[in-house]
């Protein structure tokens, strides 16, 4: 079952597209940001899928005798930990910006902000 075997990848693509759709389509900045988070999470899933090796266990050496034990690849997990941190930082920053926007404009709807700016200038 080729298609089912790539299940994780299908989910990855689906999430990626969902996130992108929300970013493009939504006018509310918070919803846009949620879209961005979904978009980033898709990549986390993708990386975690990479490290899976058939029959592999968690990459922790407990019993030194088991020399032919197969482990999952730990590197992508480490990488994605970093990427998650980056993602959190991005989200935090974006939220901070949204808070400031709310203070300055009194709205977080992109269309209304545009109206207000036109009024300003």
């Amino acid at each position: 079952m080729e298609i089912l075997g790539l299940f994780n990848y299908w989910v990855f693509v689906l999430l990626l597209m969902t996130g992108l759709f929300a970013i493009i389509h939504k006018s509310n900045l918070i919803k846009k940001l949620i879209g961005l988070s979904i978009f980033q999470s898709a990549v986390f899933l993708f990386y975690v899928t990479l490290d899976k090796i058939d029959e592999g266990t968690a990459p922790i050496i407990r019993d030194t005798d088991l020399v032919d034990q197969i482990y999952a690849n730990p590197l992508p997990q480490v990488l994605i930990l970093t990427a998650i941190v980056v993602g959190i930082a991005t989200t935090a920053l974006a939220l901070a910006v949204i808070v400031r926007i709310k203070e300055e404009y009194g709205t977080i709807e992109e269309s209304e902000m545009r109206e207000l700016d036109r009024y300003l200038s």
Partner: peptide, 23 residues
């Protein structure tokens, strides 16, 4: 204050770019 709106677009676009690179 218009810098904030500009920066939000910048964040979104920049993050999409970086995420594509990551993929």
């Amino acid at each position: 204050r218009r810098a904030l709106a500009a920066v939000f677009t910048y964040i979104v676009m920049g993050t999409i770019g970086a995420t594509f690179y990551l993929v």
